[in-house]
Computed example of a mutant assay.
Amino acid sequence: MQADEKHPQPPIPSVWTRPRRGKREQPALSREQIVSVALELLDTEGIDALSMRKLGTRLNAGATSLYTYVANKDELIELVVDEVYGEIEIPDPAAGIPWRAAAADCAHSFRAVILNHPWTASVLGELGVTQLGPNVMRLSESMLALFESAGLPAGEADFAVSAVGSYVIGTAVTEAAWLTTLARLGRSEEEWLASLLPTAEEAARDHPQLREQYASLRDKNPRETREEKFDYGLQRVLDGLETRLGQQP
C-alpha cells in the first residue's frame, strides 16, 4: 500500500536521512569526537561492549547528552562505519594506474580495513542506509568512475562495483569473524593450526585430495595462506570483468 497525504510513510531510520541537529553555541562535545571515541571503544572491546552509557563515561559526559548528536546506538554505528570506510585507499585517477591494478589495490585496502576493525564483521550488511555516508559515497563514486573509464557502460559499472565489493566484504568479514574467535580463545592462528592438523589429517584418511591439502598447510604461514586465497578469488572476479570489457564495442 502506497503512502498518501493522510497516511505518510515514516522516514527511513538512518542518521543520513534526517536533518543534522543544530549545534550549541559552546558545545561540550562534537559528533566527530563522539565517533572517534566510539571507534576506539569498538576496536578495543568489540561491538558487544558498545553502549551509550559506556561511551558517555569515556567522554566524561552523561549518556543523555550524546542524544544531542545521535538519535540512538544504530545511528552511532552508522557514523563509525562510515569513518572506517574513510580509511580505504582510493585510487587517484590522475596517477594513470591501469583499471585492473587500481581496482585490486582498492580491494586489498578495503580488506585490510575490515581486518583492522574486526567488529565490522557483525554489522556490515545489516545497517540502514550506509551507502549515503560521505566516505562510502566517495568510494563508490571513485570506483564507478574507474570502471566507466575502463569501458563499461554506466549501468554495468554499478554492477561491477557491487561484484567487487561483495567479494571483498564476504571474504574479509569471514576472516574477521574467525580472527575475533581466535582472539577470544587467546590463541594464534599458528597454534590453532598446529593443534587441528593431526585431527584433520586423520579424519581425511579416506579422502586423498583433502589429506594432501591438509598436509600442505603444515609448512605454510596461515596469514599468507589467507592473503593468497583472497587475491586468487579477487583476480578471478577481475578476470570476468576484463572478459566483459573485451566484449564491448
Rank of each mutant, 00 (worst) to 15 (best):
K6Y: 15
P8T: 10
Q9M: 15
P10S: 11
P10R: 08
P10H: 07
P11F: 15
P11G: 11
P11N: 12
I12E: 15
P13V: 09
S14Q: 02
S14H: 04
W16H: 06
W16K: 05
R20V: 13
R20M: 14
R21Y: 13
K23S: 15
K23Y: 14
R24P: 09
R24M: 15
Q26V: 12
P27Q: 06
A28W: 07
A28I: 08
A28T: 04
L29K: 02
R31K: 15
R31E: 07
R31W: 02
R31I: 00
E32Y: 11
Q33S: 09
I34K: 14
V35T: 08
V37T: 05
L39K: 09
L39F: 10
E40Y: 10
E40K: 05
E40F: 04
L41H: 00
L41R: 05
L42S: 02
L42T: 00
D43Q: 13
D43V: 02
T44I: 04
T44V: 12
T44Y: 09
T44C: 12
E45Q: 08
E45D: 02
G46F: 09
G46V: 07
A49Q: 02
A49R: 06
A49G: 04
M52C: 02
R53P: 00
K54L: 07
L55G: 07
G56S: 04
T57H: 14
R58C: 11
A61E: 09
A61V: 00
A61W: 12
A61S: 15
A63I: 04
A63V: 02
L66M: 04
L66Q: 01
Y67A: 06
T68F: 14
T68G: 14
V70T: 03
A71M: 07
N72Y: 10
K73D: 11
D74T: 03
E75I: 03
E75D: 13
L76E: 08
I77H: 14
E78Y: 05
V80I: 05
V80Q: 08
V81K: 08
V81S: 08
D82P: 03
E83H: 14
G86T: 03
E87A: 13
E87S: 08
I90Q: 10
P91W: 01
P91C: 00
P91Y: 02
P93K: 03
P93I: 01
P93N: 03
A94T: 03
G96W: 07
G96M: 05
I97H: 10
I97N: 09
R100H: 05
A102T: 03
A102V: 08
A103H: 00
A104G: 01
A104R: 07
A104P: 01
D105Y: 08
C106G: 01
H108E: 14
S109N: 00
S109A: 09
S109D: 00
F110P: 01
R111C: 00
R111A: 02
V113W: 13
I114E: 10
I114S: 02
I114G: 06
N116F: 06
H117N: 13
W119D: 02
W119G: 03
W119L: 01
W119A: 00
A121M: 12
V123Q: 14
L124E: 10
L127C: 00
G128L: 09
G128D: 04
G128A: 14
V129Q: 14
V129P: 11
